[in-house]
Simulated scan of single mutants.
Amino acid sequence: MDTPHVVVVMGVAGTGKTTIGPLLAARLGVPYAEGDDFHPEANIAKMSAGTPLTDDDRWPWLDAIGFWAHGRAGLGGVVSSSALKRSYRERLRSAAPGVVFVHLTGSRALIEDRMSHRKGHFMPTALLDSQFATLQPLGADEAGVDVDVSGSPEEITARAVAALSALDRAGDGGGSCPK
């Protein structure tokens, strides 16, 4: 990418945001911020107990991520956030208008399998259904790309870089979403 965008790596739990985010940041030569680190303790406790977050739970978290993204405007950065609903993405865009989304996508079976093998994460597999029920895929008018999560982390990252480059070449950091 020629322009140092702030990229939000989004998707349901288990798609690999925490794995792909740092790899993507390294490839783009920009800093990475882990979205989970922006959660208040109350949110982590709720999710650890298997209780889905409400919108009211998410607003302060999204505002904190938006504040970080705003501070990286013109400098570039990568941050992870589920950003499942369009309203969540709009909240992030209102704080940092130039953000671009990389939506990590995959089959429910693949994602559930990956979640069942990860260690030490507070998000239980039991919340995957609520994640998919909440998910609103990127709209054609949202700046972003969909990236399939099958394959190795390096393959996924390479697809993300290629998709972001195509978005940049289209000159449309704020419009169409090549999918």
Rank of each mutant, 00 (worst) to 15 (best):
M1K: 12
D2Q: 13
D2A: 13
T3Y: 05
P4C: 11
V6A: 09
V8F: 03
M10P: 06
G11H: 01
V12G: 09
V12N: 07
G14P: 00
G14L: 03
G14F: 02
G14Y: 00
G16F: 05
K17F: 10
G21V: 06
P22I: 11
P22Y: 11
L23M: 12
A25Y: 07
L28N: 11
G29D: 00
G29L: 01
Y32F: 15
Y32N: 04
A33T: 00
A33H: 07
E34M: 02
G35F: 01
H39V: 00
P40K: 05
E41M: 04
N43R: 01
N43I: 04
N43Q: 01
A45C: 08
K46S: 05
A49G: 14
G50N: 04
P52R: 04
T54A: 03
D56K: 07
D57I: 09
P60R: 09
P60Q: 07
L62D: 03
L62S: 00
A64S: 14
I65H: 07
G66L: 09
G66P: 11
F67L: 15
H70Y: 04
G71N: 06
A73K: 11
G76R: 09
G76Q: 11
V79F: 03
V79Y: 00
A83D: 10
L84D: 10
K85I: 01
R86F: 00
R86M: 02
Y88V: 09
Y88N: 11
Y88K: 12
R89H: 06
R89A: 08
R91S: 10
R91G: 10
R91C: 08
R93G: 12
R93A: 15
S94W: 05
S94V: 02
A96V: 11
A96G: 12
G98E: 13
V99R: 01
T105F: 01
T105N: 02
S107V: 08
R108N: 03
A109T: 13
E112F: 02
D113T: 15
D113S: 15
S116K: 14
S116H: 12
R118Q: 08
R118T: 11
K119E: 15
H121I: 10
H121D: 01
F122G: 00
A126Q: 13
A126I: 08
L127K: 05
L128A: 12
S130I: 05
S130K: 07
Q131H: 11
Q131L: 07
F132E: 02
F132Q: 00
P137C: 02
A140S: 14
A140D: 12
D141C: 07
A143F: 04
G144Y: 03
D146A: 14
D146P: 06
D146H: 14
S150T: 13
S150A: 14
E154L: 09
E155F: 00
I156W: 03
I156A: 03
I156C: 04
T157F: 05
R159T: 03
A160R: 03
V161A: 02
A163I: 05
S165C: 07
S165V: 13
A166Y: 10
L167M: 06
D168E: 15
D168N: 10
R169W: 04
R169N: 08
G171E: 14
G171H: 14
G173A: 12
G174L: 11
G174H: 14
G175D: 13
G175R: 15
P178K: 05
K179E: 13
